[in-house]
């Protein structure tokens, strides 16, 4: 038992170290268990990103509480600790500027909230779904399923396009039909198809109109609003339906064509030259 009272440094004994390790270990264990039960209880009730934030916050609180409880075993003078902590903070800050910049950027990103976990975004050249926003970095899962880690400093200074920030978004189709087809009938068919789709919003409603009298056909424009979470599925579904329905109604998408005229007199002139 003498070994327990052996001094390790200052007034701290082996027993103090064991007490610290045990209390901290228990608090980590409690945090883990609490996190598990919180996730289980909240997964039906909250969005994933909000749930993760709450779970992490509670876990950090529990671990900090454990460390705080175990600190007296080190006979810590909190005044000294603050002084040491402050000085160490400055030194570490200078030594790890990039790290601190990333942490600062992460904090500002969390405050400004230009995106949330699960949003479809484009950060600089990277497009995908936000997988996680951490203290040092943001992870994005690209549409090809590739994991990309972007340092928060880069995220903060990059242009961020968030496709899900607004509840609704607009997309459009340019549909070319032949000059011989009835444009009014084609617009009526497209309008009817759009009206029947649940996620083509009633308000703002879709608009279909003749946009251009093109070189190879009449170009119809269809502008459609859909909920941001659904727009891609609506876009892919409706384009196929429009094409099939137009074809069924005898309206076809024209292939490029050019009418070439030959002058009638050319042959006669050639005859004269040869004779």
């Amino acid at each position: 038992m003498a070994i327990l009272s052996t001094l390790v440094f200052g007034e701290v004994t082996v027993l103090d170290l064991i007490i610290f390790a045990v209390i901290t270990g228990i608090s980590v264990l409690i945090a883990y268990v609490a996190g598990f039960y919180l996730k289980k209880g909240l997964s039906d009730n909250l969005r994933k990103d909000e749930m993760i934030k709450i779970v992490r916050f509670v876990q950090i609180l529990i671990i900090l509480a454990g460390i705080f409880i175990s600190l007296p075993s080190f006979h810590v003078d909190f005044g000294e600790l603050l002084l040491i902590g402050g000085t160490a903070g400055i030194i570490i800050g200078f030594a790890s500027q990039r790290l601190v910049t990333n942490v600062g950027s992460g904090a500002f990103l969390m405050l400004e909230r230009p995106m949330r976990i699960g949003d479809s975004v484009k950060i600089g050249e990277t497009s995908g779904t936000v997988d996680d926003i951490r203290v040092l970095s943001t992870t994005v899962k690209t549409y090809e399923g590739i994991y990309v880690r972007i340092p928060n400093e880069t995220v903060f200074t990059s242009e961020i396009t968030n496709y899900d920030a607004n509840v609704a978004r607009r997309f459009e189709y340019r549909i070319r039909i032949r000059y011989s087809d009835d444009a009014d009938h084609a617009m009526h068919i497209i309008g009817h198809l759009l009206e029947a789709h649940p996620f083509v919003l009633k308000n703002p409603g879709p608009s279909v109109y003749v946009d251009e009298l093109g070189e190879n056909g009449i170009i119809l424009m269809a502008r459609i609003w859909a909920p941001s979470s659904e727009w891609w599925s609506v876009r892919t579904e409706m384009l196929g339906k429009i094409k099939t329905t137009l074809e069924k109604e005898g309206i076809e998408i024209p292939v490029p064509q050019r009418v070439v005229w030959f002058a009638e007199k050319t042959g006669a002139k050639e005859e004269n030259i040869s004779s």
Partner: peptide
């Protein structure tokens, strides 16, 4: 019923609604 959805308000601050 055939469901239909709409937007109440603006895309920035409105809500999607079952219409």
């Amino acid at each position: 019923c055939i469901p239909k959805y709409s937007l109440y308000g603006t895309p920035e601050s409105g809500v999607i609604t079952r219409y």
